[in-house]
Amino acid sequence: MVDVKGSAKTGMTVTVLYFAALRERIGRETQELAIPPEGLVVSALLARLGAADARAASALAEEPRLRVAVNHALCAMDDLVRPGDEVAVFPPMTGG
């Protein structure tokens, strides 16, 4: 497995899952991303994903409106993501 920059997996990774329109815009359902052992806040994780891929950068530009869950629990952009976590990213949702 490799991180988004192509380096060998270090064991300090998170699994990122994309849903709905984000999955279509980015062109993948899931990816592994190497992160520091101390973790990253959600907003920094999204920035790192966008910095590595132009399609992801465009899709994730709606960061203030995105919904993110870490290990199946909705979280805030300043919550910490740790190695081994599963991060699900959802596009803005509307209801009616």
Rank of each mutant, 00 (worst) to 15 (best):
Asp3Asn: 14
Ala59Ser: 03
Pro92Arg: 04
Arg82Asn: 07
Met93Leu: 14
Ala21Ser: 13
Glu63Ser: 13
Val41Arg: 11
Ala59His: 01
Leu17Cys: 09
Val14Gly: 05
Leu49Gly: 05
Gly95Ser: 14
Ala8Cys: 11
Phe19Gly: 08
Glu29Tyr: 06
Asp79Ile: 10
Pro92Val: 12
Leu22Pro: 08
Tyr18Ile: 15
Glu62Lys: 10
Gly27Glu: 06
Thr15Leu: 11
Met1Pro: 04
Ile26Thr: 01
Ala54Tyr: 06
Pro91His: 00
His72Ala: 11
Ala57Asp: 11
Val2Tyr: 06
Val2Gln: 09
Val81Leu: 02
Lys5Thr: 08
Phe90Ile: 13
Ser7Asn: 15
Asp79Arg: 02
Pro83His: 00
Leu45Met: 14
His72Tyr: 06
Ala61Ile: 13
Leu22Ile: 12
Ala8Val: 15
Thr94Ala: 14
Ala69Asp: 01
Pro92Ala: 09
Pro37Arg: 06
Met77Gly: 08
Val68Gly: 01
Glu38Asn: 12
Val42Arg: 02
Ala69Met: 07
Lys5Trp: 11
Thr15Phe: 02
Ala76Gly: 04
Leu22Asp: 07
Ile26Val: 10
Asp53Ile: 10
His72Lys: 06
Arg67Cys: 07
Asp3Gln: 05
Gly95His: 06
Ser58Trp: 09
Ala20Lys: 01
Asp85Gly: 02
Gly50His: 05
Ala57Gln: 13
Ala8Phe: 13
Thr13Val: 14
Val14Arg: 00
Pro37Gln: 08
Glu62Ala: 15
Glu29Ile: 12
Ala56Trp: 01
Ser7Tyr: 13
Val41Trp: 00
Val87Arg: 00
Ser7Gly: 11
Phe19Asp: 07
Leu45Gly: 09
Ala20Val: 14
Arg82Glu: 09
Ala44Ser: 15
Ser7Val: 15
Arg23Val: 10
Val4Glu: 11
Tyr18Thr: 12
Ala73Cys: 10
Val89Arg: 00
Val42Ser: 05
Val2Lys: 06
Asp53Leu: 12
Met77Ala: 13
Ala52Asn: 02
Leu46Lys: 08
Pro91Arg: 01
Met12Trp: 03
Pro92Asp: 07
Leu60Ile: 07
Leu49His: 03
Phe19Ile: 13
Asp85Glu: 03
Glu29Gly: 14
Gly39Thr: 08
Ala47Glu: 13
Arg82Leu: 15
Leu46Trp: 07
Arg55Tyr: 03
Ala21Phe: 03
Arg55Asp: 09
Leu80Gln: 10
Val41Gly: 05
Ala69Gly: 01
Ala51Asp: 14
Asn71Ala: 11
Ala47Gly: 13
Leu74Gly: 04
Thr94Glu: 04
Arg48Asp: 09
Leu33Met: 14
Ala21Glu: 13
Gly50Glu: 05
Thr13Glu: 02
Gly96Thr: 15
Leu45Gln: 05
Glu24Gln: 11
Met1Asp: 02
Arg65Glu: 11
Pro64Gln: 10
Gly84Asp: 09
Val70Asp: 00
Val2Asn: 10
Met12Arg: 05
Ser43Thr: 09
Arg23Ala: 05
Asp53Arg: 09
Gly11Phe: 07
Leu66Asp: 04
Asp53Glu: 13
Gly96Glu: 12
Ser43Pro: 04
Pro91Glu: 04
Leu74Gln: 03
Thr94Ser: 14
Asp85Arg: 00
Thr15Trp: 01
Asp79Trp: 00
Leu80Ala: 08
Ala56Cys: 08
Asp78Val: 12
Glu62Trp: 06
Met77Cys: 03
Val4Trp: 03
